[in-house]
Simulated scan of single mutants.
Amino acid sequence: MTPQPGRPGEPDGDPVVHVVDDDDDLRQSLRFLFGSVGIQALDYPDAPSFLAEFDPAEPAVVVVDVRMPGMSGFQLQEELLAREYPAPVVFCSAHGDIPMSVRALRGGAVDFLEKPYDTQRILEVVQHQQGRARELFAAHAARAAVRERLEGLTPREREVLALVIQGMASQAVAHRLGTSVKTVDVHRARIKAKTGAESLGTLVRDILTHQVEV
């Protein structure tokens, strides 16, 4: 990876751009292009290098070549999906075709660009995706925070919470679980205390808003 000045997440808040491509000249030209408009770019000669060095918590856009020795761009995309990495992924290829672009987009890529690049086009795409990256990483962090709040719940408390999310009152929950209303209310109180929620209503709202599984 070529060292770059500064680090992502500095005061300007602009997401970094990760360029993953085995073509040295192309990576250099993209660094120059992005740098000319104030976009910080970090580059990697292959997918394993990127996976070993990138910071998954820092907002970013990934520009990746489809065909690379070893791990392909598609395999990298699958790995990032498995890690729930929220960065927008832009695929590039000198040998692109419709099936290849369809595969990339179905896998979650936001665009598929052909080489040689139309410089204005790639700048427009990346700058637009930087805005999306801020939103995606913020949502990802919020979802992770809700999951963390739920980590201390017992299986029984999760059962109760899942039924509360369905809109059931304590009496209905007690009937469904074959227990007493008093026991259900004890579970509700513990859920509230363990998650630090102002109320179960606000906790349910956070769970539904960020689409967290209980």
Rank of each mutant, 00 (worst) to 15 (best):
G9V: 06
H140R: 04
R121Y: 07
Q171F: 05
E151R: 09
P155F: 08
L113C: 07
S170K: 10
K194A: 15
G13V: 03
R31K: 09
G9F: 02
P5F: 06
E198N: 09
R106M: 09
T119K: 01
G35T: 12
L51M: 13
V181L: 05
P69A: 15
R83H: 15
V204G: 02
S170I: 05
D14K: 06
L161P: 04
C92Q: 11
R134E: 13
T2Y: 00
D25A: 15
T183E: 13
R134S: 06
F50C: 11
T179L: 07
E135V: 14
A189N: 06
V126I: 07
E213H: 05
L200P: 01
P69R: 02
E135Y: 05
G196R: 00
A133T: 02
L123P: 04
H140C: 14
G70K: 00
V89E: 01
R106K: 10
L163E: 15
R103D: 08
E157Q: 13
L33I: 12
I39C: 08
L26K: 01
E198H: 00
S199Y: 03
L208T: 14
E58Q: 09
P5G: 11
R143H: 04
M100W: 03
D185W: 01
K115G: 03
Q171N: 11
E159F: 14
F137L: 04
L161R: 02
E114G: 12
L26I: 10
C92K: 01
R143M: 01
A87S: 10
H140K: 02
Q75H: 05
L200Q: 02
Q77P: 01
K115S: 07
I207G: 03
F32Y: 02
R27W: 05
C92L: 15
R31A: 14
L200H: 00
D43M: 07
Y85K: 03
V37D: 13
H175G: 06
I122Y: 02
G108R: 03
S49E: 15
